[in-house]
C-alpha cells in the first residue's frame, strides 16, 4: 500500500542508492545533481514550515538562502586568504571548519529571520508577501552594490570547508554530508509539525481569533516558526555555496524565492516530504528538457500553471488520489 510515508521513504532510499550507483559507474555529475536536489529540498522544507503549515506566504526566503551562502563564503574566503575578518572583540580570520560555518549560518539567519519576521508578521495577506519580497530585494541590491565581496559578480571559494578530516572535495562524501543534513532537517520538521507547537502553528492558518480565544498568542507562534524556517533555509544556502564553491547575488534573487515555492507546490503543499519530491522533479525536469532545448522554462511555466489550475495537491497528492481511485 502506498501511503505518504512510503512514498517518502522510497524517495529517500532511491536518492541514496542512485548516489551509490553513480559512484560505482563513475558519474560524478549525477552525484552533484543529487546533492543539488537535496540542498534545494532543505531550503524548501524550511519554507514549507511557514508556508505549508502556517500559510505564511514568504516570497523572500532567498534572503535566508543567500545570507547563509554569504556567511559561509565570507568565513571560508577569509580563512583561505588568512585575511582578518574582524579585529574586535577578538581577532578572527574566518574559518573553513564546517561546524563553525554552520553555527554562524544558523546564528545569522535566525537573527535575520527574527528581524524580518517581527516586522513582516505585523501585516498579513498580500502585504506579507510583498514585504518579505522587499526584504530579500534589499539584501539582493546590497550584495550587488557592496564591492568588498565581488558585487554583482560574486566570488569563488577554492576549497570546500572541512569536516572531521573527511575529504569533502570528493563528490560522494559531500553528498553524504548533504544527505545527513536532510535527514536531520526532516526529523526536526516532522517532530515540530506534530508537536503541540505544530498544532498551534497549523491553527494560526485558519483562524487567528480562535487561536487567541484559547489563550495562544499567534504572533509569537508564527515568529518562532519563521525563525526556525529561516535557519533551515540558511543551512541550505551554506551547503549550496560549498557545493558550487561560488557565492553570488543570484542566491538572493527573487526567482530563487519563487522556485522554493514551486518545489513545495510540485511536491504537495503542507507535506513534510513534499519539497524533496518537488525539488527532485524540478531538477530532473531541468536536466531532461534542458538537454533538448535551452528554452525549457516555457514548459516549466506550462506545467506549473496546469498543476495549480488542475492538479492541486502536487505529486504526492496525485499519487495518493490515483491510489484511491484504483
Amino acid at each position: 500500500m502506498m501511503s505518504e510515508k512510503n512514498i517518502s521513504y522510497i524517495s529517500l532510499v532511491s536518492i541514496f542508492l542512485i548516489a551509490i550507483f553513480s559512484e560505482y559507474f563513475n558519474e560524478p555529475y549525477l552525484i552533484t545533481l543529487l546533492s543539488r536536489i537535496i540542498i534545494f529540498s532543505i531550503a524548501a522544507i524550511g519554507l514549507n514550515l511557514v508556508l505549508g503549515f502556517g500559510n505564511l506566504i514568504s516570497f523572500g526566503h532567498a534572503a535566508f538562502f543567500g545570507l547563509g551562502g554569504y556567511v559561509s563564503g565570507i568565513l571560508a574566503i577569509h580563512a583561505f586568504n588568512s585575511e582578518l575578518l574582524i579585529s574586535w572583540p577578538f581577532l578572527f580570520n574566518g574559518s573553513n571548519n564546517s561546524i563553525i560555518i554552520w553555527l554562524f549560518t544558523i546564528l545569522f539567519c535566525s537573527l535575520l529571520a527574527l528581524l524580518v519576521g517581527a516586522l513582516s508578521l505585523r501585516t498579513s495577506g498580500v502585504y506579507f508577501i510583498m514585504i518579505t519580497l522587499a526584504f530579500a530585494q534589499m539584501l539582493y541590491y546590497f550584495a550587488i552594490s557592496w564591492p568588498s565581496y565581488g558585487g554583482e559578480d560574486g566570488f569563488s571559494i577554492y576549497v570546500r570547508s572541512t569536516l572531521f578530516g573527511i575529504n569533502t572535495m570528493k563528490g560522494l562524501n559531500f553528498f553524504f554530508i548533504c544527505f545527513f543534513w536532510l535527514l536531520i532537517i526532516l526529523f526536526i520538521t516532522s517532530k515540530v509539525v506534530n508537536s503541540p507547537f505544530g498544532l498551534a502553528l497549523r491553527a494560526t492558518r485558519f483562524n487567528l481569533t480562535r487561536v487567541r480565544s484559547v489563550g495562544i498568542n499567534p504572533f509569537r507562534i508564527q515568529l518562532i516558526a519563521f525563525v526556525l524556517s529561516g535557519a533551515i533555509t540558511g543551512i541550505a544556502g551554506s551547503l549550496y555555496v560549498d557545493l558550487n564553491r561560488f557565492v553570488s547575488p543570484s542566491l538572493l534573487s527573487w526567482q530563487m524565492s519563487g522556485e522554493f515555492i514551486v518545489f513545495i507546490l510540485i511536491g504537495g503543499l503542507g507535506r513534510i516530504y513534499g519539497p524533496l519530491i518537488g525539488a527532485a522533479f524540478f531538477v530532473a525536469f531541468e536536466q531532461f528538457f534542458g538537454s533538448y532545448t535551452e528554452h525549457w522554462q516555457i514548459f516549466l511555466g506550462i506545467i506549473i500553471i496546469s498543476t495549480v489550475l488542475f492538479a492541486k495537491g502536487g505529486i504526492i497528492g496525485f499519487m495518493l488520489k490515483y491510489q484511491k481511485n484504483e
Binding site: 506566504i57 515555492i261 507546490l265 522554462q297 516555457i298 516549466l300 511555466g301 506549473i304 500553471i305
Partner: peptide, 27 residues
C-alpha cells in the same frame, strides 16, 4: 480562473507566466 483562488495560487501561476513569457520572448 484565479480570482477565487488564494494568494498562493495567484503567486504561483503568475510566476509561471513570467517564466513562460520571458523564455518565449528570448526564443
Amino acid at each position: 480562473k484565479l480570482y477565487n483562488r488564494d494568494h498562493l495560487d495567484q503567486v504561483l501561476v503568475t510566476f509561471a507566466l513570467i517564466l513562460f513569457f520571458s523564455e518565449l520572448v528570448r526564443w
